[in-house]
């Protein structure tokens, strides 16, 4: 699939729009088990990305993704800035200008591994990796966009009963059980927004 400038811009706008619509919900989730800064951090980051949308979209896909990641690192703050930033920067390094499905799945897996290394974490610890891992698997299995969005949403829900082992929530121990992980929720929102744009275009 050709991810041209117009589509790149559309993807940026869709990600920013879902963050705008849900940042207060992310704040509430983070207030329950974290330090409460995830919603404002995501909003700050994607507001900055949206403000730079023209410049980011006019660059080829790899450079645009790296630029988007750097923007998030420099504006989001908190622990999630480097995690989201690393994801997009690594995805930009892994992809060429017109990745096919196989290349995209491989790039996604590499970006996910980089997030795990950055956070010294792995799936099963109640983090955004618990969304990225099943999505990575679904991508490799050639799941449709709608199917991937569903996998992401279900994976975020599945963090509710999990015990947090990384991040600020880990200090809560058993009290982290019963709350959805805010990073998992935000990852499912971003992935859902991207899938909604791509649905019907990917063939």
């Amino acid at each position: 699939m050709q991810i041209d400038q117009a589509l790149r811009r559309q993807l940026i706008e869709a990600m920013a729009a879902t963050v705008e619509a849900h940042w207060q919900e992310l704040t509430e989730l983070d207030q329950a088990i974290g330090d409460g800064d995830h919603g404002t951090g995501m909003k700050r980051g994607f507001d900055a990305v949206l403000a730079d949308a023209d410049k980011l979209a006019e660059q080829p896909l790899p450079a645009g993704l790296r630029g988007l990641g750097q923007k998030l690192v420099m504006t989001m703050g908190g622990a999630s800035g480097p995690l989201y930033g690393t994801f997009f920067m690594e995805l930009g390094k892994a992809l060429d200008e017109n990745p096919d499905r196989t290349a995209f799945a491989a790039g996604f897996a590499r970006a996910m591994a980089a997030v795990g290394a950055r956070g010294k974490s792995e799936p099963g610890q109640k983090t955004l990796l618990d969304v990225l891992a099943p999505v990575s698997k679904a991508l490799a299995e050639n799941e449709t966009s709608a199917g991937i969005a569903r996998v992401a949403a279900e994976a975020a829900e599945a963090t509710v009963p999990m015990l947090a082992l990384r991040g600020r929530a880990a200090f809560l121990g058993p009290r982290s059980v019963g709350h959805m992980d805010p990073g998992a929720r935000s990852a499912s929102l971003i992935i859902g927004a991207v899938c909604a744009v791509l649905e019907g275009k990917s063939g």
Partner: peptide, 12 residues
């Protein structure tokens, strides 16, 4: 401290 002046750390 973070960007907003609260507890946290900031890459820039």
């Amino acid at each position: 401290g973070d960007e907003a002046g609260g507890l946290g750390t900031s890459v820039p």
